[in-house]
Amino acid sequence: MLKKVIKYSLGIIVICFVAYNAVYIKKLNEVKVTENKLFDAKAYAHNYLYKKLPVALNNTIQIDKLLAHIRTNAANAFKTYSHGQNIGDVGYFLVGGQGQIVNIDDNDVLVKSDNGLVIKLAIQYIFGNAVRDAPGLISMNEFNNTMDMNNISGEINKIIKNEIVPPFIVKAKKGDKVAYKGCIELNQSALKLQNIEVIPVFLKIEN
């Protein structure tokens, strides 16, 4: 009988000890005050595009220079100019360039530079993480979960489509000279250097 009492008492002590060290209790309103509010991806994206990114745009590389570098030494070009959230083969680049508009359709604006390079400025289907990741300004560690980070890309792409592209498109016409800055995605193991699509973040007609 005594043995059983000792056994159960020890068991209860262990459970109490574990439970005491397992949880802590606070007032909910105190926790709510200190806790971060729900992540606002839209506000974050707005601040990123209009406050943080313009500073980074001073450091864009000219797209023709980048492509020449990639053709001679892709690994070094990726190491020097690309950013990304993973260690895979995909790299995002912040690029700039000038040229003449040679075609405008519902999806893209084709721009040909003086040296003959033709790129596509995306105006309709703006997807992916290029603008979020290319400047290397956002780290995954800033966020509590990957969903928040993915939502930023969605909001950035929406702002580009709704606020950056439309003022340009209403004025742009074939033959206009245009200066652009934007982001591109390249896969080092499957390089495709023709008809590169640029997600624009800055567009200016220079006639």
Binding site: A22, V23, I25, L28
Partner: peptide
């Protein structure tokens, strides 16, 4: 953790507590 809005309590879990759960 676990929020109990009715009683204005928040039950937080330490690493050992969460692992145990």
């Amino acid at each position: 953790g676990i929020e109990l809005p009715g009683s204005n309590l928040f039950i937080g879990f330490t690493i050992s507590g969460a692992i145990l759960a």
